[in-house]
């Protein structure tokens, strides 16, 4: 018998996490409701005669994703902590990094799931014309989600074992979301304004570089967040 490798065991862990999420649906539902609420409430926070809804949309979208993403991340290591299941994962003959990759994959599905509902909702409520920009917009969403989830998963694991975990996670993670949210919101704004994708290349490069650097770095340092 031979244990599955890094990706194999990561896939098993991701599937297990998603099965739990699907069974309980509590985090996904709250995240969805939270993002819809945020989109609706933000609409009334501005004077719609002074600021066009289309100008608001990108900022609202990204603030919403950031906070609903945090909600999902927090749950990620909670399921392992509840009955000591983390020990069972650690003792299994799988690489430690597989736990990180598996959790990150499940969180990515979670964040993309929220985005898949929130983005059309925003387009509908704010009456934004996306037109031909859909594929590029979805690309930006995915690029941003990867970086968000890489850093978020690491910090969720780090704070899961501490007091004040639910406060500490946003305090630590939000500064790291700056180079994700800023480029993503800027690129979204340009795309919604009907500008060609090429104008957003500078921003997309930052996003892509962030994804590559932090996905790798977080995977590398993850074992140091496990208690031994």
């Amino acid at each position: 018998m031979s244990a599955p490798g890094l990706l194999g065991s990561a896939w098993l862990i991701a599937r297990k996490d998603l099965a739990i999420e699907f069974r309980t649906r509590s985090a996904l539902l709250s995240a969805l409701v939270l993002s819809l609420l945020a989109i609706v409430i933000f609409y009334f926070a501005w004077d719609s005669t002074a600021v066009g809804a289309g100008d608001l949309a990108p900022g609202v979208l990204w603030v919403t994703f950031t906070f609903s993403g945090l909600l999902g991340l927090h749950r990620s290591f909670g399921v392992e902590a509840q009955d000591g299941a983390m020990d069972a994962l650690l003792i299994a003959p799988v690489p430690r990094q597989a736990i990180f990759v598996g959790k990150a994959l499940a969180n990515l599905a979670f964040v993309l799931g929220v985005q898949a509902v929130a983005l059309p909702a925003m387009v509908l409520f704010y009456d934004v014309g996306v037109g031909a920009a859909w594929p590029a917009l979805i690309g930006v969403m995915i690029l941003a989600a990867i970086g968000l989830v890489a850093v978020g998963t690491l910090f969720a694991g780090l704070t899961a074992n501490t007091r004040l975990a639910e406060l500490l996670l946003p305090v630590l993670a939000l500064p790291f979301f700056v180079p994700i949210v800023m480029p993503a919101a800027q690129a979204t704004a340009k795309l919604l304004a009907g500008r060609p994708l090429a104008e957003s290349f500078a921003w997309l490069r930052i996003l892509l570089a962030f994804d590559l650097v932090f996905a790798y770095a977080c995977m590398l340092v993850f074992p140091a967040t496990l208690d031994d």
Binding site: K16, A19, I20, Q82, D83, G84, A85, A88, I91
Partner: peptide, 16 residues
């Protein structure tokens, strides 16, 4: 690979 661990905590996922 050789170890089986039993604890007073169930180490189970209660939703599964």
């Amino acid at each position: 690979h050789h170890i089986g661990l039993i604890s007073h905590r169930s180490m189970l996922y209660e939703a599964l």
